[in-house]
Design a protein around this nucleic acid. Structure first.
Length: 302
DNA sequence: CACACGTGGAG
DNA sequence: TCTCCAAGTGT
Protein backbone atom coordinates (compact mmCIF):
# COMPACT_ATOMS: atom_id res chain seq x y z
CA UNK A 1 0.00 0.00 0.00
CA UNK A 2 1.64 3.18 -1.18
CA UNK A 3 0.91 6.65 0.08
CA UNK A 4 -0.49 7.48 -3.32
CA UNK A 5 -3.09 4.75 -3.32
CA UNK A 6 -4.17 5.78 0.18
CA UNK A 7 -5.09 9.22 -1.17
CA UNK A 8 -6.68 7.56 -4.22
CA UNK A 9 -8.89 5.39 -2.08
CA UNK A 10 -10.10 8.30 0.01
CA UNK A 11 -10.50 10.57 -3.02
CA UNK A 12 -12.59 8.04 -4.91
CA UNK A 13 -14.76 7.55 -1.85
CA UNK A 14 -15.13 11.32 -1.56
CA UNK A 15 -16.25 11.71 -5.14
CA UNK A 16 -19.07 9.28 -4.46
CA UNK A 17 -19.98 10.28 -0.92
CA UNK A 18 -19.15 13.92 -0.30
CA UNK A 19 -21.84 16.00 1.35
CA UNK A 20 -23.33 18.64 -0.90
CA UNK A 21 -22.02 21.70 0.92
CA UNK A 22 -22.54 25.08 -0.75
CA UNK A 23 -18.97 26.31 -0.36
CA UNK A 24 -17.79 23.33 -2.38
CA UNK A 25 -19.64 24.46 -5.50
CA UNK A 26 -17.83 25.15 -8.78
CA UNK A 27 -18.40 28.90 -8.86
CA UNK A 28 -17.71 29.78 -5.24
CA UNK A 29 -15.37 32.74 -4.84
CA UNK A 30 -12.15 32.65 -2.79
CA UNK A 31 -13.80 35.17 -0.45
CA UNK A 32 -16.78 32.88 0.09
CA UNK A 33 -14.43 29.97 0.76
CA UNK A 34 -12.40 32.05 3.19
CA UNK A 35 -15.57 33.03 5.04
CA UNK A 36 -16.64 29.40 5.26
CA UNK A 37 -13.28 28.34 6.66
CA UNK A 38 -13.34 30.98 9.38
CA UNK A 39 -16.91 30.14 10.34
CA UNK A 40 -16.11 26.44 10.46
CA UNK A 41 -13.32 26.91 12.98
CA UNK A 42 -14.48 24.89 15.99
CA UNK A 43 -18.04 25.08 14.73
CA UNK A 44 -20.32 22.36 13.29
CA UNK A 45 -21.32 22.52 9.63
CA UNK A 46 -25.06 22.57 10.27
CA UNK A 47 -24.78 25.71 12.33
CA UNK A 48 -22.59 27.47 9.77
CA UNK A 49 -24.81 26.85 6.75
CA UNK A 50 -27.50 29.53 7.26
CA UNK A 51 -25.08 32.15 8.56
CA UNK A 52 -22.72 31.64 5.64
CA UNK A 53 -25.58 32.08 3.17
CA UNK A 54 -26.77 35.29 4.82
CA UNK A 55 -23.23 36.66 5.19
CA UNK A 56 -22.36 36.21 1.52
CA UNK A 57 -25.72 37.55 0.39
CA UNK A 58 -25.05 40.76 2.29
CA UNK A 59 -21.30 40.97 1.72
CA UNK A 60 -20.50 39.19 -1.55
CA UNK A 61 -17.09 40.83 -1.76
CA UNK A 62 -14.58 41.93 0.91
CA UNK A 63 -15.11 45.61 0.14
CA UNK A 64 -18.79 45.32 1.05
CA UNK A 65 -17.96 44.08 4.52
CA UNK A 66 -15.07 46.49 4.95
CA UNK A 67 -17.45 49.38 4.31
CA UNK A 68 -19.65 48.48 7.25
CA UNK A 69 -19.04 48.44 10.98
CA UNK A 70 -17.73 45.61 13.13
CA UNK A 71 -21.06 45.78 14.95
CA UNK A 72 -22.86 44.66 11.81
CA UNK A 73 -20.46 41.75 11.46
CA UNK A 74 -20.94 40.75 15.10
CA UNK A 75 -24.73 40.78 14.69
CA UNK A 76 -24.63 38.82 11.45
CA UNK A 77 -22.41 36.30 13.20
CA UNK A 78 -25.38 35.46 15.38
CA UNK A 79 -24.76 32.65 17.81
CA UNK A 80 -22.00 30.86 15.97
CA UNK A 81 -19.73 31.29 18.96
CA UNK A 82 -16.25 32.78 19.34
CA UNK A 83 -17.49 36.19 18.10
CA UNK A 84 -13.94 37.49 17.94
CA UNK A 85 -13.90 35.64 14.65
CA UNK A 86 -16.49 38.07 13.32
CA UNK A 87 -14.31 41.02 14.29
CA UNK A 88 -11.26 39.39 12.73
CA UNK A 89 -13.17 38.64 9.56
CA UNK A 90 -14.11 42.30 9.38
CA UNK A 91 -10.48 43.28 9.95
CA UNK A 92 -9.55 40.77 7.30
CA UNK A 93 -11.91 42.40 4.80
CA UNK A 94 -10.33 45.77 5.54
CA UNK A 95 -6.87 44.29 5.06
CA UNK A 96 -7.91 42.73 1.75
CA UNK A 97 -9.07 46.12 0.51
CA UNK A 98 -6.00 47.92 1.82
CA UNK A 99 -3.34 45.47 0.77
CA UNK A 100 -4.76 43.32 -2.00
CA UNK A 101 -7.12 45.45 -4.03
CA UNK A 102 -10.16 43.86 -2.42
CA UNK A 103 -9.18 40.38 -3.56
CA UNK A 104 -8.17 37.31 -1.59
CA UNK A 105 -4.48 36.70 -2.29
CA UNK A 106 -3.35 33.30 -3.54
CA UNK A 107 0.02 33.32 -1.82
CA UNK A 108 0.35 31.35 1.37
CA UNK A 109 2.49 33.95 3.14
CA UNK A 110 0.01 36.71 2.31
CA UNK A 111 -2.91 34.59 3.50
CA UNK A 112 -1.13 33.81 6.75
CA UNK A 113 -0.65 37.52 7.39
CA UNK A 114 -4.42 38.15 7.41
CA UNK A 115 -6.33 38.56 10.69
CA UNK A 116 -7.98 35.35 11.82
CA UNK A 117 -6.12 33.27 9.28
CA UNK A 118 -3.72 30.74 10.75
CA UNK A 119 -1.89 27.63 9.64
CA UNK A 120 -5.01 25.68 8.84
CA UNK A 121 -7.13 28.36 7.19
CA UNK A 122 -4.34 29.73 5.01
CA UNK A 123 -3.65 26.30 3.55
CA UNK A 124 -7.32 25.49 3.19
CA UNK A 125 -7.89 28.64 1.12
CA UNK A 126 -4.76 28.11 -0.96
CA UNK A 127 -5.86 24.55 -1.71
CA UNK A 128 -9.63 24.83 -2.03
CA UNK A 129 -9.89 28.28 -3.60
CA UNK A 130 -6.76 28.26 -5.72
CA UNK A 131 -6.05 24.59 -6.29
CA UNK A 132 -2.57 24.67 -4.82
CA UNK A 133 -0.76 21.69 -3.37
CA UNK A 134 -0.46 22.21 0.39
CA UNK A 135 -1.14 19.88 3.30
CA UNK A 136 -4.42 21.03 4.86
CA UNK A 137 -4.34 19.77 8.41
CA UNK A 138 -7.29 20.15 10.73
CA UNK A 139 -8.47 18.00 13.61
CA UNK A 140 -10.14 15.55 11.20
CA UNK A 141 -7.06 15.05 9.09
CA UNK A 142 -4.83 14.61 12.10
CA UNK A 143 -7.16 11.93 13.45
CA UNK A 144 -7.35 10.09 10.12
CA UNK A 145 -3.58 10.11 9.69
CA UNK A 146 -2.94 9.15 13.31
CA UNK A 147 -5.21 6.14 12.99
CA UNK A 148 -4.86 4.91 9.43
CA UNK A 149 -1.17 5.65 8.98
CA UNK A 150 0.42 5.74 12.42
CA UNK A 151 -1.89 3.16 13.97
CA UNK A 152 -2.66 5.31 16.98
CA UNK A 153 -6.13 5.67 18.53
CA UNK A 154 -6.06 9.45 18.31
CA UNK A 155 -3.98 12.42 17.28
CA UNK A 156 -2.17 14.68 19.73
CA UNK A 157 -3.91 17.76 21.11
CA UNK A 158 -2.23 20.28 18.82
CA UNK A 159 -1.05 20.49 15.23
CA UNK A 160 2.70 20.18 14.95
CA UNK A 161 5.03 20.66 11.97
CA UNK A 162 5.43 16.90 11.84
CA UNK A 163 1.70 16.59 11.17
CA UNK A 164 2.04 18.79 8.10
CA UNK A 165 4.95 16.71 6.84
CA UNK A 166 3.16 13.42 7.40
CA UNK A 167 0.09 14.68 5.57
CA UNK A 168 2.06 16.23 2.73
CA UNK A 169 3.61 12.84 2.04
CA UNK A 170 0.16 11.40 1.44
CA UNK A 171 -0.80 13.94 -1.21
CA UNK A 172 -0.77 13.25 -4.93
CA UNK A 173 1.81 15.23 -6.91
CA UNK A 174 -0.70 16.96 -9.14
CA UNK A 175 -2.05 20.08 -7.35
CA UNK A 176 -5.73 19.66 -8.20
CA UNK A 177 -5.62 16.03 -7.11
CA UNK A 178 -3.84 17.05 -3.90
CA UNK A 179 -6.51 19.61 -3.09
CA UNK A 180 -9.21 17.03 -3.72
CA UNK A 181 -7.41 14.55 -1.49
CA UNK A 182 -7.21 17.11 1.31
CA UNK A 183 -10.95 17.73 1.13
CA UNK A 184 -11.44 13.98 1.09
CA UNK A 185 -9.31 13.42 4.19
CA UNK A 186 -11.28 16.05 6.05
CA UNK A 187 -14.60 14.58 4.95
CA UNK A 188 -13.54 11.10 5.98
CA UNK A 189 -12.63 12.33 9.44
CA UNK A 190 -15.85 14.30 9.70
CA UNK A 191 -18.32 11.58 8.76
CA UNK A 192 -16.59 8.18 9.02
CA UNK A 193 -13.41 8.28 11.08
CA UNK A 194 -15.07 10.27 13.83
CA UNK A 195 -13.70 10.90 17.29
CA UNK A 196 -16.09 8.79 19.30
CA UNK A 197 -17.74 6.13 17.17
CA UNK A 198 -15.79 5.54 13.95
CA UNK A 199 -17.82 3.79 11.26
CA UNK A 200 -15.10 1.42 10.16
CA UNK A 201 -17.60 -0.81 8.37
CA UNK A 202 -18.05 1.79 5.65
CA UNK A 203 -14.51 3.19 5.63
CA UNK A 204 -12.72 3.14 2.27
CA UNK A 205 -9.31 2.59 3.90
CA UNK A 206 -10.38 0.02 6.45
CA UNK A 207 -8.43 -2.70 4.59
CA UNK A 208 -5.20 -0.74 4.90
CA UNK A 209 -5.80 1.01 8.22
CA UNK A 210 -2.87 0.64 10.61
CA UNK A 211 -5.12 1.17 13.60
CA UNK A 212 -7.42 -1.68 12.57
CA UNK A 213 -4.45 -3.88 11.69
CA UNK A 214 -3.00 -3.43 15.14
CA UNK A 215 -6.18 -4.39 16.96
CA UNK A 216 -7.82 -0.96 17.13
CA UNK A 217 -6.91 -0.13 20.67
CA UNK A 218 -9.61 2.08 22.17
CA UNK A 219 -8.99 5.82 22.31
CA UNK A 220 -7.54 6.74 25.68
CA UNK A 221 -10.18 9.13 26.88
CA UNK A 222 -10.16 12.86 26.32
CA UNK A 223 -6.90 14.20 24.93
CA UNK A 224 -7.79 17.72 25.87
CA UNK A 225 -8.33 19.36 29.20
CA UNK A 226 -11.93 19.39 30.29
CA UNK A 227 -13.41 22.56 28.87
CA UNK A 228 -15.63 23.82 31.63
CA UNK A 229 -18.06 26.55 30.72
CA UNK A 230 -20.60 27.18 33.44
CA UNK A 231 -19.48 29.97 35.70
CA UNK A 232 -16.53 31.04 33.56
CA UNK A 233 -15.74 34.45 32.15
CA UNK A 234 -16.61 32.94 28.81
CA UNK A 235 -20.16 32.38 29.86
CA UNK A 236 -20.42 35.89 31.25
CA UNK A 237 -19.01 37.38 28.06
CA UNK A 238 -21.58 35.41 26.13
CA UNK A 239 -24.39 36.76 28.26
CA UNK A 240 -23.18 40.35 27.97
CA UNK A 241 -22.71 40.10 24.25
CA UNK A 242 -26.15 38.59 23.76
CA UNK A 243 -27.68 41.71 25.28
CA UNK A 244 -25.52 44.07 23.23
CA UNK A 245 -26.17 42.12 20.05
CA UNK A 246 -29.90 42.36 20.43
CA UNK A 247 -29.88 46.04 21.32
CA UNK A 248 -29.91 48.71 18.63
CA UNK A 249 -27.20 50.92 20.03
CA UNK A 250 -25.70 51.78 23.39
CA UNK A 251 -26.86 49.73 26.35
CA UNK A 252 -26.88 51.36 29.79
CA UNK A 253 -24.57 49.78 32.30
CA UNK A 254 -27.41 48.89 34.67
CA UNK A 255 -28.95 46.65 32.07
CA UNK A 256 -25.67 44.84 31.57
CA UNK A 257 -25.33 44.47 35.32
CA UNK A 258 -28.41 42.30 35.33
CA UNK A 259 -26.83 39.44 33.42
CA UNK A 260 -24.45 38.33 36.18
CA UNK A 261 -24.45 38.89 39.92
CA UNK A 262 -20.72 38.85 40.63
CA UNK A 263 -19.49 42.43 40.12
CA UNK A 264 -15.84 41.51 39.87
CA UNK A 265 -16.33 38.81 37.30
CA UNK A 266 -18.86 40.79 35.30
CA UNK A 267 -16.58 43.81 35.11
CA UNK A 268 -13.66 41.64 34.11
CA UNK A 269 -15.70 40.01 31.34
CA UNK A 270 -16.86 43.37 30.02
CA UNK A 271 -13.33 44.74 30.08
CA UNK A 272 -12.25 41.68 28.14
CA UNK A 273 -14.85 42.32 25.47
CA UNK A 274 -13.53 45.87 25.15
CA UNK A 275 -9.93 44.68 24.94
CA UNK A 276 -10.88 42.20 22.25
CA UNK A 277 -12.47 44.86 20.06
CA UNK A 278 -16.01 43.59 20.41
CA UNK A 279 -17.42 46.30 22.65
CA UNK A 280 -16.69 49.97 23.36
CA UNK A 281 -17.84 52.55 25.87
CA UNK A 282 -20.64 54.82 24.68
CA UNK A 283 -20.98 57.86 26.86
CA UNK A 284 -20.72 57.91 30.62
CA UNK A 285 -22.36 54.68 31.65
CA UNK A 286 -23.19 52.73 28.53
CA UNK A 287 -21.59 50.30 26.12
CA UNK A 288 -22.20 49.25 22.54
CA UNK A 289 -20.85 46.89 19.91
CA UNK A 290 -17.79 48.41 18.26
CA UNK A 291 -18.82 50.91 15.60
CA UNK A 292 -22.48 50.58 16.40
CA UNK A 293 -24.84 53.52 15.94
CA UNK A 294 -24.93 56.15 18.70
CA UNK A 295 -28.00 56.62 20.84
CA UNK A 296 -30.77 58.46 19.02
CA UNK A 297 -30.68 62.16 19.91
CA UNK A 298 -32.97 63.09 22.74
CA UNK A 299 -33.78 59.51 23.55
CA UNK A 300 -32.96 58.45 27.09
CA UNK A 301 -31.19 55.13 27.36
CA UNK A 302 -33.29 52.46 28.92
C1' DC B 1 3.42 25.46 25.30
C1' DA B 2 -0.69 26.36 27.98
C1' DC B 3 -4.55 28.88 28.07
C1' DA B 4 -8.54 31.80 26.69
C1' DC B 5 -12.04 32.08 23.65
C1' DG B 6 -18.99 30.54 22.57
C1' DT B 7 -22.48 27.71 21.51
C1' DG B 8 -25.65 23.98 21.21
C1' DG B 9 -26.48 19.13 19.97
C1' DA B 10 -25.55 14.15 20.57
C1' DG B 11 -24.67 10.11 23.43
C1' DT C 1 -27.83 15.52 33.94
C1' DC C 2 -23.32 15.84 32.24
C1' DT C 3 -19.48 15.09 29.30
C1' DC C 4 -17.57 15.52 24.91
C1' DC C 5 -16.74 17.93 20.99
C1' DA C 6 -17.27 20.67 16.19
C1' DA C 7 -12.91 22.61 9.29
C1' DG C 8 -8.41 26.90 15.14
C1' DT C 9 -6.23 31.41 16.21
C1' DG C 10 -3.76 34.61 19.07
C1' DT C 11 -1.11 35.58 23.05
Amino acid sequence: MTEQSFADRVSRWYEQNARDLPWRGPDVSPWAILVSEVMLQQTPVVRVLPVWEAWLARWPVPAALAAESPADAIRMWGRLGYPRRAVRLHECAVALVDRHGGEVPDRLDQLLALPGVGTYTARAVAAFAFGQRHPVVDTNVRRVVARAVAGEPDAGPTTRPADLVATEELLPVEPAAAALASAAFMELGAVVCTARSPRCAVCPVEPVCAWRASGQEAPTGPTRRPQRYAGTDRQVRGLLLAVLREATGPVPRPRLDQVWADDVQRSRALAGLVTDGLVEPAGEAAYRLVGDAPAPAGQPLT
